[in-house]
Design a protein around this nucleic acid. Sequence first.
DNA 1: TTTTATTTTTACCAAATGGTCTATATCGGA
DNA 2: TCCGATATAGACCATTTGGTAAAAATAAAA
Lengths: 233, 233
Amino acid sequence: MTVRKLRSKRDATLDSPIKSRRVATDVAKERRLRQIELKRGAIMDAALDVFSRYGVHGTSLDQVAIQADVSKTNLLYYFPSKEALYVNVLRQLLEVWLKPLQSFSVEQDPIEAIAEYIRVKLTLSRDHPAESRLFCLEIVQGAPLLLTELQQPLHDIVQNKVAVIRAWVQEGKLASVDPYHLIFSLWAVTQHYADFRAQVEAVSGKTLDDPEFFAETLQNLQDLILNGIRPRS
Amino acid sequence: MTVRKLRSKRDATLDSPIKSRRVATDVAKERRLRQIELKRGAIMDAALDVFSRYGVHGTSLDQVAIQADVSKTNLLYYFPSKEALYVNVLRQLLEVWLKPLQSFSVEQDPIEAIAEYIRVKLTLSRDHPAESRLFCLEIVQGAPLLLTELQQPLHDIVQNKVAVIRAWVQEGKLASVDPYHLIFSLWAVTQHYADFRAQVEAVSGKTLDDPEFFAETLQNLQDLILNGIRPRS
DNA sequence: TTTTATTTTTACCAAATGGTCTATATCGGA
DNA sequence: TCCGATATAGACCATTTGGTAAAAATAAAA
């Protein structure tokens, strides 16, 4: 109810800006909206962090609230329910997540393009581990919420890149790899360092936060994959 | 308490078999023990399944009980607590999980050995997806329970295999890859098909259950990795 | 058959938790 | 300074859920 109120208010200001007699009013309203977005953002950041660590079900709203430095009731003023909060977090995460794939196109040199893709994805694994983990958790559990709205755009963009890779293969610029499996492998090896960080650390004693280890990992993954797909006489 | 009772009883029968005047008694006792293990096994199977789907926190004991076709209280008769059940499931899982790595040794041909390892791991991903998912969930969340007892054996066995791979490299049988990253990559690409099954299916429309897709996946992964590490002049 | 040990069920409890309702504080505008 | 709207907090509630106590049922032993 409270949220319904909030929603309708915000929608109202967004959809039909009141023809204000004074500019001052509008400015203030906008500032307030920014404030709201700021606070919502802070809550979502906190939520992303704890959700990705303990899972959605393993996290209480109180935990999120504390982490975001607000009261639970106040949190529920900004998000109608735990699920709504979670969905918002997931949706925001998706944007970060699908962006890197956009990049490569037929004109590029495949070796360079893929090397760069590995670099970008590995950087993402280092700098956005929470996003990586939460995405992983959601997908592992069948992505009940994500899949419906992920399926279409993901399918489309992958389809697109599959065509690009296929073209590269046909032009003899790559060994004959199945584009799907190449993409899956790229995802797998790069995200592994974020998602399985605990294991990586247990085994090797290092994480991507160590610059040397990061560089070494990048080098190895690029070598492995690129040698794996370089056209062979 | 109830469990303590159960425990002590079982321990007693295991540690100091009562010098029975009759064989019949022992036989009966053994049969009962088998029954207990059977029931515990059934409960653990059910638990593995639901835990891996909804996460530990997302699963209630009632769900597990229903899946195992026992009452919740009855379940708690066989396992002292939810956590105890979970730990048992994890421990059992570990055995299945660490086995494949044991296999390769210096005498083998590295290309064959690694091809076989990929095959085994991919088969595991197909036939034991629940184990793969639960392991993934646990590790992603920092493996609070697993890590303590996983760390040592995992570290040891990996250390061992690292030495093997390093020897292969030194003998010129492999390109100069870092053994750690090779192992991580092998894990990543094979487990991906189980853990990210939802995504793989959303993108490609197929799963490892499809024999054709399985074969194709295996072929591609082997090609990719093996070409990636084959010694190049 | 009687007795004893073990397994299963029934009723119940206490804590945690998502969420609501109401009161209060705060802030922008007049 | 006053007022209306927005934001925050506090008390509270209903449900879920892990777990217990005790009784009932079943199986084993004597």
